[in-house]
Amino acid sequence: TGQQLTFLAVVLILVVRFVTGPLSYAANTPGGLFAPMLALGALSGVVFSQALDWIRPGMGTQLLPALMLVGMATLFTSVVRAPLTGAVLVMEMTATTSVAVAMFAAGATAVIVAQLCGAPPIYDTLRERMLGTDDR
């Protein structure tokens, strides 16, 4: 039916976008920040949806739109460290508020995990790069 091929294509796109985003920033290549981040989050939701389908057939398919929205908000939140902004941004873009609680919960978890990993917020890193105070 092509579903396995489609899943492999989604995983490939996710990996390529994940690798090329930081490469373009490292090379000072102009590009967006929001759209690639939101696309990666949505693709992560698609992958998680497929994983749920393997565990319990039909569940991932049913939750696909919600998982994509939560993935978008969560990735944005973990990178920017603004859980309220991430959830509200996705709700405004999609006019969907039905998964707001899930977006807030996932966003709070994402902020905690990012802090524990020691990853700085993206805007702090960009500010240091622009000012030339990057100590790395």
Rank of each mutant, 00 (worst) to 15 (best):
A35R: 05
T77E: 08
V11N: 01
A110E: 13
A102Q: 15
T74K: 00
G31T: 03
T96N: 13
S78L: 08
A105V: 15
L14D: 01
Q115S: 12
F18Q: 05
T77R: 12
D53K: 11
Q50W: 12
Q4M: 12
A35Y: 04
I112Y: 13
A42Y: 02
A106D: 03
G45T: 06
F18E: 00
M91H: 08
L64W: 02
D124M: 13
V46F: 09
P121Y: 01
L33M: 15
A114R: 02
D134G: 06
P36G: 05
L33S: 12
F7N: 08
S44P: 01
V10L: 11
G71T: 03
M37F: 02
V88N: 03
N28Y: 11
E128N: 09
A66G: 00
F104Y: 14
L52N: 00
T96A: 11
T96D: 13
M68S: 04
S49R: 02
A35V: 14
L84D: 09
I122L: 15
G60C: 07
T74N: 00
Y25R: 10
M68N: 02
R81P: 02
M59S: 00
S78M: 10
R129L: 13
T125V: 15
Q50K: 15
G45F: 00
T77C: 13
M103F: 11
S78H: 01
D134Q: 09
Q4R: 13
L40N: 11
G60P: 07
M91E: 11
